[in-house]
Design a protein around this nucleic acid. Structure first.
Lengths: 220, 220, 220, 220
DNA sequence: AATGAATGAGCCTTCATTCAT
DNA sequence: GATGAATGAAGGCTCATTCAT
């Protein structure tokens, strides 16, 4: 009755797209369990049955949203971030950190990307396995590659520690956002990403440079 | 079966205790929303109505579990961790990191403490406000205090960046545990906590020492 | 069993109708609190969730039932009851009483109308406010209007006393039905409405005529 | 702990009494179904199990409350109300009406008496049968006796009509109180009982005198 | 005599999913 | 291709009642 199909081209494959966007928002805001199919469909301007029609069920919709989010994020912020291949390892590390932060903290569309990934980390669903293999491991290996160049060929477990320290610092600003907002209201928002990237880079480079000097040995 | 009243002192106020333990487990495993009162009561060997009787409703049970977890964790791993008051700032930082890691990663009882806190960070409920004020802020200020001693009186926002880098590194091992397990199966479990503490301490001390030399200025 | 879709036009919006009828019955029999959504749906041949789907919740269903009952009753027994506008005040009073009695005592469908209203009077829910304004006050003012014509312009509080005496007599047969049945089994049922109307009219006209003679003053 | 038995004599048969009072209040306010045993016990300063201990179950408590209420009301407002046996029928009718109104409208303790009875009329429980025989029928027969004297020996059904008209007028102010309050806020409260009694007496005497003149025949 | 912890049945509601159109 | 009415399973919560003390 009130759904008179304003524009013909809007109503074919396009509903699927709107569902992905809406689902991304809602899953990011509420989490998988608390998100309701009804709200997703409502926000997408679609019927209650649309999710089941287009994706089979809620679980498969979620998986598709995850993939979609990762695709979009890589398009918008490629890991190299316009850096020449011949850049130094230190430069590439800084670029990696900046790009990573933008990917998880950027407020643009899809702004929900970071939150969604963070949620999946802490509260894994069946979708995590493929997400790790297809998206996370490649990114992780890019990082360990850079680190390897910097500290020399250390044990791979050492490299993982360093990688974790770097990623952990970045992810924290997304993951602990509600707490940080309460500890110091109004901080760490949007435009601060550049300053964050600089801090984390400096913080991490200190440790990596030191490690290189010691040939990967501990500095007790 | 579980109603044999093994020992008189075990009953009475004891059901409340069992509910707290069971709820902690289930909330940690499934999250607040997905956890069901029925499962909690079942695991505690109590009736469905027990939660309502002892805590009023699911929300208040959750709040009590959070407080209980924090109390237990502090008892088991006090922040000072047997360190004399006159210890150097560097020593106290290392102690802080070690204690913090034990608190969130320890597998002992209640092993669910870390996961529960991590969940609350990322997916806050109404309980977060009081949790921040009563538990998190004091801990956070202990850390910024130590950092302040080390780098001299810098801007408080600088100190927060350092604190976040340290806490972020620690929390990551709890928060991203499912992913780390997939990236390198079998690592970062139980007994590794000591090694983790050493790594994070070294990693962070490099940056802090550097910062002191520069009088809090950036090291570009 | 009851899902045979007898006729196409019967389905669709028809479930809502069946729910209203069933709810009216059950609410009238048991009262709002004791009525269960399950029984209502079962009697309507619908699923437990039907109430929620069509009306939101039990409270809103109840409000709709009240409105529906009033609508139906007015359709079946309009206040004027086929009386010409030029009828005398006494004739209109008698018509009012008869129509009112039919509305609250009639056993036809929906036979539960009277009981339902009576329940709402004595044990008000949030629905009473709108019921008073939309249904009761207009009827009440029709009555005070007629009375005003008969006794001359008396104080409005006097008119209310008379109105209450008339309505009170009528409502009593519905309200105290279970007691009357016990005091004199088998009386005051169905076909007696005409006799009741005549009695109440005579009873009340005596007082009103007397009051007119005295110019609204008390007849001590 | 906080129940240290302030006065020894208070704590024996006295709890039963406090339960009756509290239950009367709560039943009158909320109705049988909506009243909870917990609230009753709480208001009576007794244990949750006190009702079951003293009365067996909620149903039997209710029956006892009904009996208790009737006993108390008759003590406070005896039907004769200080009238000599040789008073005229008209005087005795007026006394009956006044006493009846006081019994159901009086705000003193137990103020809940009227509401409770009214509730039982409209929504009978198993207690109604004995209530009718023990309390209502005697009162009703007192009234029909007076009426019989006034209109001469008419058919008993005629006498019942008159009795119903009188009782209906009285009961209305209790039964429809919530509606009357909304139709004309602040009216018909407490101190108005005398005026009410006068109005209803006048209203009814008109009809009864008329009926006597006609020898019980209709006045068409 | 009286308590209060514990129970289990049952109620309202929500939600993902299905099915006829 | 898409809809929206309808479903049934399950969850949180309330409440009268019981039982060991």
């Amino acid at each position: 009755m009130h759904k008179k199909k304003l524009t013909p081209p809007e109503s074919a494959e396009d509903t699927r797209q709107r569902l992905l966007e809406a689902a991304g928002e809602v899953f990011a805001e509420k989490g998988f369990r608390s998100a309701t199919v009804r709200e997703i469909c409502s926000r997408a301007g679609a019927n209650v049955a649309a999710v089941n029609y287009h994706f089979g069920d809620k679980d498969r919709l979620y998986i598709e949203v995850l993939k979609y989010a990762h695709r979009r994020a890589l398009e918008k912020f490629p890991p190299a971030l316009g850096l020449s291949k011949i850049a130094s390892a230190e430069e590439r590390l800084e670029a990696f950190i900046r790009s990573f932060l933008y990917r998880i903290l950027d407020e643009g569309r899809p702004s929900w990307h970071g939150k969604l990934m963070i949620r999946e980390l802490a509260d894994p669903t069946a979708a995590l396995d493929s997400l790790v293999e297809e998206s996370i491991r490649p990114t992780y290996e890019t990082l360990t590659g850079i680190i390897g160049e910097m500290i020399g060929k250390a044990a791979s477990s050492d490299m993982r520690y360093f990688a974790n320290s770097i990623v952990g610092q970045c992810v924290f600003y997304c993951h602990a956002a509600p707490v940080l907002e309460r500890l110091a209201p109004g901080k760490f928002k949007g435009s601060e990403i550049e300053r964050l990237a600089e801090h984390i880079s400096q913080f991490s480079l200190c440790a990596l440079r030191q490690s290189r000097k010691n040939g990967g040995r501990k500095t007790k």
